[in-house]
């Protein structure tokens, strides 16, 4: 019983702390990519992650990619990005989508990792604030 309680506590606490980190990073990403938007419209291909965006301030979760400002992708499936800003969530997804994605966020070895792709940023005419410039990678 005690083990079960401890395990539950561990899972809940580590999960909630991980979500909090993710929320902070997403907030930072959205305000960097859309500095003038009062509300950022987000579409995600992973239903289980939508609650994170739904709970964020100044973020609106939309059901159609067409209505979105940014597409948050967790899967490798090809979708019609319709020239929208794409952001990869996961290492493998980022590797696969790095030609399209403006950046990627993933956990590796228990550490949060953030990357912005220089080529795509330039293509989209996005200038990141100084605090995020260290995450820009010149990926060819």
């Amino acid at each position: 019983m005690k083990r079960f309680v401890l395990l539950t506590m561990f899972v809940v606490s580590s999960f909630s702390s991980q979500i909090n980190v993710e929320k902070k990073i997403y907030k930072m990403i959205f305000s960097a990519l859309f500095p003038s938007n009062s509300v950022v419209k987000v579409w995600s291909d992973e239903p289980s992650k939508t609650f994170i965006f739904a709970s964020m301030k100044k973020v609106k979760l939309v059901k159609s990619q067409n209505n979105a400002d940014i597409l948050m992708l967790y899967h490798n499936e090809e979708i019609d990005t319709n020239n929208k800003i794409v952001f990869a969530n996961g290492y493998l997804v980022f590797q696969r989508k790095k030609g399209k994605a403006v950046g990627g966020f993933y956990w590796q070895k228990g550490r949060p990792n953030l990357i912005f792709v220089k080529k795509i940023l330039q293509k989209k005419g996005i200038v990141l604030p100084d605090n995020l410039k260290k995450y820009i990678e010149d990926i060819k």
Binding site: Q108, K109, N113, L114, E137
Partner: peptide
């Protein structure tokens, strides 16, 4: 990790 990729 993949060779030469960034690791925070």
């Amino acid at each position: 990790g993949v060779f030469d990729t960034k690791f925070d």
